Amino acid sequence: MRLRAFIFDLDGTLIDSVEAHVKSWITSFEYVGYSNVSEDNVRKLIGLSGMDIVKILLGDDGLRMYSLIRRVKNKVFFREIREGNVELYPCAPELLAYLKSRGKLLGLASSTPNYLLIQILEIFNIMDYFDVIVGGDEVRNGKPHPDIFIRAFSKLGVDPREGSVVGDTYYDIMPANRIGAFSILVLHDSGNSLSHTPTSTADETLPKLKVRSLCELLEILKELRN
């Protein structure tokens, strides 16, 4: 199979940011008076849109305060970046550079709003690798609906069946499989077994390829070339 394009998730896939997001959400919830939300409950929702996270955890009352919650959350998250608590995963730039050198089209599809994505990519100096960037604010239905990946492939002019989605949770794998893309799950040595998978058919949540790290994925791609 010749893959023309690769669509990457960001958080937990290219950057080690999940714990920073958890801390940011917890802090923002406490700021508006919700101190009983557990880190585990937040952690298993990372990958969904911010509005979906707030709706699930705080309900309609939380949604009415979403703008304030989001502002506090963003402030805390970027502080975590400045303090060095968010880093690129090993081999992330090398993998992106290799794919570009092979003439592949690259996209980023993240639940994070586009205006924040651009700032994050510029901070980590990987913005220029991507041909398209699709944030969660560009689609009506967030992950695990496939809309964000459909839009990314459409902007690249590539049929999803000729592309791959690279992510770290079922929020990436399930929609990738639904649109016929080649799904790649990156574990980052976490032992992630998609344990937070909702009720669905087994095939929808099984990745076509599972790797321990971006470094392993890079080596596999190089071997396939030979």
Rank of each mutant, 00 (worst) to 15 (best):
K55Y: 02
V72K: 15
F130E: 10
G136Q: 13
R140H: 03
T199S: 13
P198E: 03
G50I: 04
C91Q: 08
P146S: 15
A109R: 10
S193V: 12
R225I: 02
G107Q: 01
L121N: 10
L185M: 05
F149V: 11
E80D: 10
S164D: 01
K73I: 01
N74C: 02
Y34L: 06
L96W: 03
K104G: 00
L14K: 12
S17C: 07
L58C: 03
V22K: 03
D61P: 00
Y170V: 13
A109W: 11
L209R: 12
V132Q: 09
I7S: 09
I7V: 14
T13I: 06
D60A: 13
V165M: 04
S183T: 05
M51C: 00
G103W: 05
G167D: 01
S49R: 15
I46P: 01
L68R: 13
G180P: 10
E223Y: 06
T201S: 13
N141I: 05
G84H: 11
F29S: 07
R70E: 12
K155F: 02
S24N: 04
V37F: 09
L3W: 05
V72Y: 03
E87K: 15
E219Y: 06
V132E: 03
I123S: 08
T112N: 12
L156D: 10
R212I: 00
R225P: 00
G84Y: 06
F153H: 10
D189I: 00
D52K: 13
F130R: 06
L187T: 12
L209T: 07
R43W: 02
L88Q: 11
V186S: 03
L221F: 12
R79K: 15
W25T: 01
V86A: 08
T169R: 14
E204M: 14
K23P: 00
L105C: 04
S213C: 06
R64Q: 13
K143Q: 07
G47T: 09
T169Q: 05
Y89H: 07
K75A: 14
K155C: 01
K73W: 08
G84E: 11
Y98F: 15
I53L: 14
K208P: 00
K73N: 02
P160N: 04
K73T: 00
L209G: 06
S154K: 15
S28K: 09
A97S: 15
E80Y: 02
E122Y: 01
D159Q: 04
Y98V: 06
H188F: 08
I15Q: 04
T27S: 14
L106T: 03
L10N: 05
R161N: 04
